[in-house]
Design a protein around this nucleic acid. Structure first.
Length: 653
RNA sequence: GCUUCCUUAGCACAGCAGGUAGUGCACUUCACUCGUAAUGAAGGGGUCGCCGGUUCAAAUCCGGCAGGGAGCUCCA
């Protein structure tokens, strides 16, 4: 990155990051830090080498770190505005986040009107352009200072810092906030901001704590970027599966049926059926799986052995009362123990392993009432579940194969670029949540880490996200609201075989514990459908479309021919229908497009006479007249190869 | 589970200083038999989410419940 220095010369730095570090070290620029910074190994007063405007550009516009500084400063301005309008509120925390910033207040709930007023107050503060001045206090004085100001949350935060800590504060005008910085030099550096919403949020993220009021806002380097961002938010919400999926009649919900229990409608089922058949055939024919079909419920005894009764009872639907009933059942929240008993049905040799059990299994999880969302978080769902029973020496290879299968599925669906990989680890500080010895956890986590590293898959590590019986790889995707959902999970389980006394006989005739991999190919079908709706805005790849072709006769005179075309395509397994209504062709095309049908076949006098069809596709628009057999071959190939055709025409009407 | 907003016809919405409901699309019927994104006309459809309260009178005000949205928490 090139920086213009005060003497007019241009200096090149290794990376944007190094420049940002430098800029943060400027005290009289727009960032407030120590006066000296390091430039290529030399300690210098940075004010002497970098122009203020230049730093502003670096900080605000072209670097995410800089944008964070702007947003963080904006959160202070927000807090100042709130304090001005509502002097009695108590301040909690106010960090910058990926999309902007928020600030938590102990206050009465804010209305949209309040937010508008706060925004106006922010405008005044920014216009006034107070400097942000940093000062520090020893811990004890800092506590006294915040106690005097009547800010109990700040006091609590400072008390958590080490005894010898020097606490830093930032002040603009008469507003002071506990903060590590960095900040803009002046509130004037904020050019484009907006308060977007408010909601409740627990103090320190713990549901047993008081609920505070959070105000979310966004800020960008320029008004144009802010506008573009807000527009983008609007646009992607049009893809929201929860809206689009209902509009497209893929699913619905009914209040008397209950929360988290969506009804899949014929078109939605068609998509899921297509996915399910694909996954089952793939697993069985190409990846060595065998299929099971096990009960949807079991006696509590089963879950006591698996550990679910102790670790997951709140999440299960329990049928019966332990006090009164002789037998208590529970709907299954997973398939693991059921498939273990399939394994245990007969004694296994080391030669039998690995065994890969697959099941398209319906599961039930009693989610809290506030957790349900469309098709992504439901109480009953169906998953491409499977358990691999393997010898320890086969574990790494099988785990890799599971990753490869998952990757294949993602690639086929065209979503491989949209996922992030997570190594979900246990939490050593919360051992009670997990079974097994710490050494086993550390070891298995290292195995997974090695595998991901070897396969050159970028991943992040999440503490406390493991299953209670083992660490896992979660493959996540973001929904239109930016929240991550797990689409695929592959779990390393060295513990449950013990619980269920599973073994195989090795070369020496000894009983040996197998390892288990819990995994999914494509995760939960409902969630996958939701993901695909949002990914493709309802314009699914042809092979997944519930209606792939609609035949549009010009008038009723050509119905016979339209029926023939339908019959021919049906014979070839194409999802096809005929619009038999006596409407104008323009109207039928409009309706077919709104129904997001990829191929429209217009048939009239010419087509009937020549045995052809006039093809209009969502991909190219008018594709011209084709022999019916040619079109049939083409679409069958597209479906068979699961091609994701590019949409090259945009007809937004 | 917590905070907050919302619920009027299949869908999108209007009506609301309290006097028992409207518009557009959709749907049905009829006419038109049509060449690439909306042919015209007529018609049917809602005890205003449910239960209760205030009132002579409630879609409208109040309370509870259910369902839906956003956020928080949770997600084996």
């Amino acid at each position: 990155m090139k920086i213009t220095l005060k003497d007019g010369s241009v200096k090149e730095y290794e990376s944007a990051k190094s420049v940002i570090d430098i800029a943060f070290d400027i005290s009289e620029g727009l960032a407030r830090m120590a006066c000296a910074g390091e430039v290529n190994g030399e300690v210098v007063d940075l004010r002497t080498v970098i122009e203020e405007d230049c730093i502003l550009n670096i900080l605000t516009a072209r670097d995410p770190e800089g944008l964070r500084v702007v947003r963080h400063t904006c959160s202070h301005v927000l807090a100042q505005a709130v304090k001005t309008l509502f002097p009695n509120v108590k301040l909690a925390i106010g960090p910058a986040i990926d999309t902007g910033y928020y600030y938590d207040f102990d206050a009465a709930p804010f209305s949209r009107e309040d937010l508008d007023n706060i925004e106006k107050e922010m405008k005044k503060i920014i216009k006034k352009g107070d400097k942000l001045e940093k000062f520090t206090l020893p811990r004890a004085e800092a506590i006294a200072f915040m106690e005097e100001k009547g800010e109990p949350y700040k006091v609590e935060l400072i008390r958590d810092l080490p005894e010898d800590a020097i606490i830093s504060f930032y002040q603009q005008g008469d507003f002071v906030d506990l903060c590590a910085g960095p900040h803009l030099m002046s509130t004037k550096g904020i050019k484009a901001y907006k308060l977007t919403s408010s909601s409740g949020a627990y103090w320190r993220g713990k549901s047993e704590n008081a609920m505070l009021q959070r105000i979310y806002g966004s800020a960008f380097a320029t008004k144009e970027e802010l506008e573009a961002y807000l527009q983008h938010l609007e646009d992607i919400k049009k893809r929201d599966h929860n809206k689009l999926g209902r509009e497209m009649e893929l699913f619905t919900t009914v209040d008397v049926i209950g929360q988290g229990l969506p009804l899949l409608m014929p078109k939605g089922v068609k998509i899921i059926q297509t996915l399910q058949r694909w996954i089952e055939d793939l697993e069985d024919n190409e990846w060595g799986y065998v299929r099971t079909k096990t009960p949807l419920m079991a006696k509590s005894d089963l879950y006591k052995i698996s550990g679910h009764w102790d670790h997951y009872k709140d999440g299960m639907f329990v049928l019966g009362d332990e006090e009164k009933d002789k037998e208590v059942f529970a709907l299954r929240p997973m398939t693991c123990p059921f498939q273990y008993y399939v394994y245990k049905n007969s004694q296994k040799s080391y030669r039998d392993l690995p065994i890969r059990y697959g099941e398209t299994s319906t599961l039930f999880r009693n989610e809290d009432s506030g957790e349900m969302h469309g098709l992504t978080r439901v109480r009953q769902f169906t998953i491409s579940e499977g358990h691999l029973i393997v010898r320890p020496d086969q574990m790494v290879e099988e785990f890799k194969n599971c990753l490869a299968l998952a990757k294949h599925c993602l690639t086929t669906l065209g979503v491989e670029e949209d996922v992030t990989y997570h190594l979900s680890k246990w939490d050593p500080d919360n051992g009670a949540k997990y079974i097994g010895a710490p050494e086993v956890w550390e070891e298995t986590e290292q195995h997974i880490r090695d595998i991901l590293t070897e396969l050159e898959i970028p991943f992040v590590e999440d503490v406390g996200e493991a299953a209670f019986y083992g660490p896992k790889v979660d493959i996540n995707a973001r929904n239109v609201y930016g929240k991550e959902d797990t689409m695929i999970t592959i779990q390393w389980d060295a513990l449950l075989a013990e619980q269920f006394d599973m073994y195989y006989i090795d070369q020496n005739g000894d009983k040996v514990r197998p390892y288990i991999i819990h995994r999914t190919s494509m995760g939960c079908y409902e969630r996958t459908l939701a993901w695909l709706i949002e990914k493709y805005a309802g314009l699914f790849p042809t092979w997944l479309c519930p209606e792939q072709v609609r035949v549009l006769p010009i008038s009723e005179k050509y119905l016979d021919y339209a029926n023939q075309v339908e019959k021919e395509l049906k014979k070839n397994g194409v999802q096809v229908s005929v619009d038999r209504r006596s409407e104008k062709i323009g109207y039928k095309i409009r309706e077919a497009r709104l129904a997001k049908v990829p191929y429209m076949l217009v048939v009239g006098e010419k087509e009937e006479a020549e045995g052809k069809v006039s093809v209009r596709s969502r991909y190219l628009g008018d594709e011209g007249m084709k022999e019916l057999s040619v079109f049939t071959d083409e679409i069958c190939k597209e479906i068979r190869t699961k091609e994701i055709r590019k949409i090259e025409v945009q007809e937004n009407k």
